[in-house]
């Protein structure tokens, strides 16, 4: 049986608008103007137990709204939604005990107290038996090598340490489904790797079903065998992650940086995105990437090179363009 099932799920928001300036503000006091925005539009989704799904899409695509409906924070405007056999917006305790949400920019930790104090609170809130609590805490602390800051006031933790503690808090009660919204946002590369390894372990060892929202393509590529791509509230793609990137990611984004001002000549077939005397950002067709990087390193040995995945928005546009070309 599917753990998550939505059919034709739709969420429409009403947004207040007003003309600029004082006159607009006064006018809006007497006459309100609202516009409607469909954040999620006829969304069908199913997720089976133990899946690790990447929910990707540009800003404003509707990913977070979808997560909010799946966790019951907001009610859908129309359509059907069933998570773990419950209608999420009823917010039944029996339902809430079976999932966890971690939003990268919203903390669950009590900042004035230590992480251990937060864990104790969550132990009681989720009615976690003593043996399960102790076993999980030991396991997670070991996996994150986090024993050193268990008794540290949460507000003094670094961003990376804090995110690790957020994940421990969320997983103490062995949730069957974990919703993650941008868990690696703002973290450095080693912290990102640490968190990815932890999530992989949780998915494989505990069979936790994970729905991951991220702009970090490395998160999605390394963790999620399946990806759901969202654009303008609609499902644009649902299938293997490798296939998505192989089919639609045609370029890589390269940044070349120089300490001294340099007259950098762009390789052929590489459209420039940004250029000044110290930095050039350009895209390279995926097939030419190795050769182009080799050429740059040969011609500019003092250059620092950074290679990134293409922006997800570009991939969405490409999928739409492909559909329009081959309807």
């Amino acid at each position: 049986m599917s753990l998550i099932k939505t059919r034709n799920l739709t969420k429409t928001f009403r947004r207040f608008e007003k003309a600029p300036g004082l006159a607009g503000s006064v006018k809006s006091l007497f006459k309100r103007v609202y516009t409607e925005k469909t954040a999620v539009d006829g969304f069908d989704l199913t997720a089976e137990e133990g899946e690790f799904i990447g929910l990707i899409g540009p800003n404003g695509a509707g990913k977070t709204t979808l997560i909010k409906m799946l966790t019951g924070i907001i009610a859908p405007t129309s359509g059907e939604v069933n998570v773990l056999g419950y209608y999420p917006n009823k917010l039944e305790n029996a339902f809430k005990k079976q999932y966890a949400v971690v939003m990268g920019q919203k903390s669950q930790l009590i900042f004035d107290l230590t992480c251990a104090d937060t864990f104790l609170l969550y132990k009681e809130m989720y009615e976690i038996p003593n043996d399960v609590y102790k076993r999980n805490l030991e396991l997670f602390v070991d996996l994150f090598d986090a024993r050193g800051y268990l008794n540290t006031q949460a507000r003094t933790l670094s961003l990376g340490e804090r995110m690790k503690m957020e994940l421990v808090t969320a997983l103490l009660h062995n949730p069957r489904v974990l919703f993650l919204d941008e868990p690696t946002i703002g973290l450095d590369a080693p912290a990102q790797r640490h968190i990815r390894a932890f999530l992989k372990e949780m998915n494989l060892r505990h069979g936790t079903t994970i729905l991951l929202t991220s702009h970090n393509m490395e998160d999605v590529r390394s963790l999620c065998p399946r990806s759901v791509l969202v654009g303008s509230g609609k499902k644009v793609y649902d299938g293997p992650t490798d296939k998505l990137f192989d089919a639609y990611q045609t370029s890589k984004k390269v940044t070349a940086q120089f300490e001294d001002a340099t007259d950098f000549r762009l390789p052929e077939n590489c459209p420039v995105l940004e250029q000044n005397a110290h930095k050039t950002v350009f895209t390279v067709p995926k097939a030419l990437c190795g050769a182009v990087l080799h050429q740059i390193m040969r011609d500019y040995p003092q250059c620092d090179l950074f290679v990134e995945e293409e922006d997800i928005g570009v991939i969405v546009e490409r999928i739409y363009a492909g559909r329009e070309a081959n309807p």
Partner: peptide, 9 residues
């Protein structure tokens, strides 16, 4: 941030 109180039992 009230959502934090909506998702805990």
């Amino acid at each position: 941030r009230f959502s934090g109180h909506m998702v805990t039992p």
